[in-house]
Design a protein around this nucleic acid. Structure first.
Lengths: 217, 217
DNA sequence: TTTATTGTTTAGACAAATCTAAAAATTTTA
DNA sequence: TAAAATTTTTAGATTTGTCTAAACAATAAA
């Protein structure tokens, strides 16, 4: 298989990919905390292994093979996060670093048994969908909270930012997965949002609202 | 901390150590499946980090610091084995390779929570003792089955060989952890042993008997 | 106690992943 | 569209862990 490092590159390229647009060298370098020159080196290697399509100066896209590999790593990462939260009582802001390590353990049996043990979860503790073993994602109808208008109601079903500081902030405001919310008002001035959570009025900035995912219902 | 590779060297040196006797370069090379020259290189590095005591041509011993590190890896390995068998229904002969990977995950919180989740097990699925977080082992009174005499009775509480083929063989004979046995006869000729397990007469070679650990009772 | 054997170390080389500095290509700005 | 700014690549070096071949040390055998 691939090395730990190669797997990380594939995962990062996957996360930075949008609608088949090529990913830039610098974008990868920043995410992986390395230098652009190192990224070029590694991309060449991945290209030789046919895991990415690479055209000099044009950025990279994942091949089908590369994409499957990347999705499998995402699957493992998210299943381990569920394990840590559901079974070992980790908080949702404590799981990321450990899952970054666990995702590289090589054993199909392990991951299938873990999936079963966790009762085939469809989303991780941040509401991100967990692909099945064939790489298929369940369809989830998310909307960014920042896209809602006054009067809209829904349930918090995900977040798109996983930093500990952000998640702790949400926790403090009571804005955790599964909570029902209702928009009171969206301020013209700065896009900040006033809303109800469990009969409590709360205010959040537009920046925070952008990273909370809502299922309308 | 140390690299994956350094951790493996420490663990192997720990397992090869007996009563503070220095471990030979070649012994390490064989266990780690590498060349003696590579072992010498790595030993020098570990010595600079004060994880081993090293005298040219005299072999290595672990320093206190090195020993604690090694024991911690052993602790993690054995806890993960319990997890795999007790929670994910792995068989006792399927856990070793995966645990070899899992033992290198760096997170104290993870391992303490895992310990708790497993209800603080004292032994792994092969009967090997699990050190606590301070590196202390519970005292276990094992005797090799090959040391018993006709008429002796006891319970199988461990094995000292973890290969899949050996463990599958035991399974086939019904010689698994917790089973009570009684020695019928030890043959002068080849040291093979005739014994009762659950009213069944069975014969095992001296070689097999040496790797089965018994608590007399 | 010299010789043979076995075990260990050194020297020099290599692959993987990274880096810095400089060159080249691309994009933006004027 | 030419100059400036940005981005990417190349060239060459470094670190980690490994290797082979040869030299060296310790032990066993004659």
């Amino acid at each position: 298989m691939q090395s730990y490092t190669e797997e990380n590159y594939l995962k990062v390229i996957y996360h930075l990919s949008e609608a088949n647009h090529p990913v830039q060298t610098n974008a990868i370098a920043e995410r992986i905390q390395t230098k652009a020159a190192s990224v070029t080196d590694m991309i060449k290697k991945l290209s030789e292994k046919e895991l990415v399509n690479y055209v000099k100066y044009q950025g990279v896209t994942l091949t089908e093979k590369g994409k499957l590999t990347a999705i499998n790593i995402v699957r493992k990462h998210r299943l381990w996060e569920v394990f840590l939260v559901d079974k070992l009582n980790f908080k949702w802001d404590e799981v990321h670093e450990v899952a970054e390590e666990l995702e590289h353990i090589q054993s199909n049996l392990l991951i299938e048994r873990l999936d079963e043990f966790l009762d085939f979860p469809k989303v991780d503790p941040h509401g991100d969908p967990i692909p099945d073993k064939h790489g298929n994602f369940a369809e989830l109808a998310f909307v960014k909270l920042s896209k809602l208008n006054s009067g809209d109601k829904g349930t918090i079903t995900g977040v798109s930012e996983h930093s500990s500081s952000f998640l702790k902030h949400l926790e403090k405001l009571g804005l955790t997965l599964g909570k029902r919310i209702e928009i009171i008002e969206v301020l013209e001035f700065d896009g900040s949002v006033e809303l109800f959570v469990e009969q409590q009025k709360t205010n959040i900035s537009r920046e925070v609202a952008k990273h909370i995912l809502i299922t309308k219902n």
